[in-house]
C-alpha cells in the first residue's frame, strides 16, 4: 500500500508540475528574470503549493500517526548552519543556469530525453559527490541526539 500511495503522490506531483508550467525551464527562467519580461506565474505555483502543503502538515500533525506508516518523519532541526546555506546557494546557481530543479528534470525525462537525461545524470553525480564532504561536528551531535539520518533529506 505504501508503494502504491507513493506512486500516486509522485504521479500527482508530476502532473502538478506540468499543469503549473513549473516543468518548463523557459517559464522558470522567466520568473527568475526580474529585470527582463518578468513572468510572475511561478509565485502562484508556490502560493498554491505551500498553502495546501501547510494544511496537510496541520492535518498530519493533528492525526499524529500516518495512515500507512508507523510514524511521521518530519525534519526537526531548526539551526542554521554552513552546509544548509552553502548548499542552497550552490543549488540556486545551478537552478538559475538551466531553469531546472530535481522534480521537473525527472518529469522531463520522457518529454525532452536527451537534455533531461544529461541533467539528471550530472545531478546524480553531484548527489554522490556530497559524500566526499566531511560531515560537520554539529550533524554528528544532532545524530547522537536521536535525530534519524533521514531528517537531513528534507
Amino acid at each position: 500500500m505504501r508503494t502504491v500511495s507513493a506512486f500516486a503522490a509522485g504521479l500527482l506531483f508530476g502532473l502538478g508540475l506540468l499543469v503549473s508550467g513549473m516543468s518548463d525551464p523557459a517559464k522558470v527562467l522567466g520568473f527568475l528574470d526580474l529585470v527582463g519580461h518578468w513572468d510572475p506565474s511561478l509565485a502562484f505555483v508556490m502560493a498554491g503549493a505551500v498553502a495546501v502543503s501547510a494544511l496537510g502538515t496541520l492535518a498530519a500533525r493533528r492525526r499524529g500517526r500516518p495512515l500507512l506508516a508507523p510514524r511521521l518523519e518530519i525534519p526537526t532541526r531548526r539551526d542554521l548552519d554552513l552546509p544548509l546555506v552553502a548548499g542552497a546557494a550552490i543549488f540556486g546557481l545551478g537552478w538559475g543556469l538551466a531553469g531546472l530543479c530535481p522534480g521537473p528534470a525527472l518529469t522531463l525525462l520522457t518529454v525532452a530525453p536527451a537534455q533531461a537525461a544529461t541533467f539528471v545524470a550530472a545531478m546524480i553525480a553531484g548527489m554522490l559527490l556530497v559524500r566526499l564532504v566531511p560531515e560537520p561536528a554539529t550533524d554528528r551531535d544532532a545524530r547522537r541526539g536521536g535525530i534519524r539520518p533521514e531528517a537531513r533529506g528534507a
Binding site: 553531484g126 559527490l129 533529506g153
Partner: peptide, 13 residues
C-alpha cells in the same frame, strides 16, 4: 547545472 543542483540540494538538505 545538474552537477550543481545535485550537489547543492544534498549539501543543503
Amino acid at each position: 547545472a545538474g552537477l550543481l543542483v545535485g550537489f547543492g540540494s544534498r549539501l543543503g538538505s
